[in-house]
Amino acid sequence: MENPSNTASGARSAILHVAFCVDDRYVPRMGATIASIMANNAGAHFVFHVFVFSISDENRRRVAQLEQRFGVGTMIHVIDPEQFREFHHFIKSSYYSAATFTRLVVPKVLAGVADRVVYLDADILCVGNVDELRTLDLAGKVVAAVPDAPVTMARRTKALDMRSKLYFNAGMMLVDVAAWMAAGISEKAVEVLSSDREDLRFQDQDALNLALEDRTLFLDNKWNHIYGLVADLERDRRKLSLQGEAVFIHFAGSVKPWSLWTGHEATELFRTYHAMSPWGDLPLEAAPQNYKEMRMYSRFLFQRREFGNSLAWYWRYLAKKRSRARATG
Rank of each mutant, 00 (worst) to 15 (best):
G253P: 07
D236R: 11
W180R: 12
D236K: 10
S310F: 04
Q243P: 08
R12C: 05
V117G: 11
D161K: 14
I249C: 04
A145T: 04
G171N: 07
N224M: 09
W313P: 04
R238L: 09
L200S: 13
A32H: 03
M75Y: 02
A179S: 11
Y317F: 15
M181Y: 00
T100E: 15
T262R: 14
N221I: 00
L174G: 01
R62Q: 12
D148M: 02
R324T: 11
A111P: 00
D24S: 09
Q68K: 14
T267D: 07
P150E: 12
D220H: 06
Y227I: 00
E293S: 14
L160G: 02
V50M: 05
W258Y: 14
D148L: 02
R237A: 08
Y119V: 13
D23R: 08
N224D: 12
R103C: 09
M75I: 06
S310R: 07
A11Q: 14
P4R: 08
V63W: 03
L174S: 01
K92R: 12
A139M: 11
I226C: 02
T152L: 02
A231V: 03
H88N: 13
D204N: 14
Q83P: 03
H89P: 00
D196L: 07
A139N: 12
S310I: 03
G280E: 04
P147H: 12
S94G: 07
N3Y: 08
L133M: 09
V50A: 06
L282W: 12
S13W: 01
P278T: 05
S5E: 07
D199G: 05
A149P: 00
S9K: 05
N169V: 04
D206F: 07
D206M: 05
T157A: 05
M276H: 00
A183G: 13
V247F: 00
C126V: 02
M296L: 15
L301A: 05
D236Q: 04
R12P: 01
D281C: 07
V142R: 03
V177I: 15
R116F: 06
V106I: 15
G228S: 13
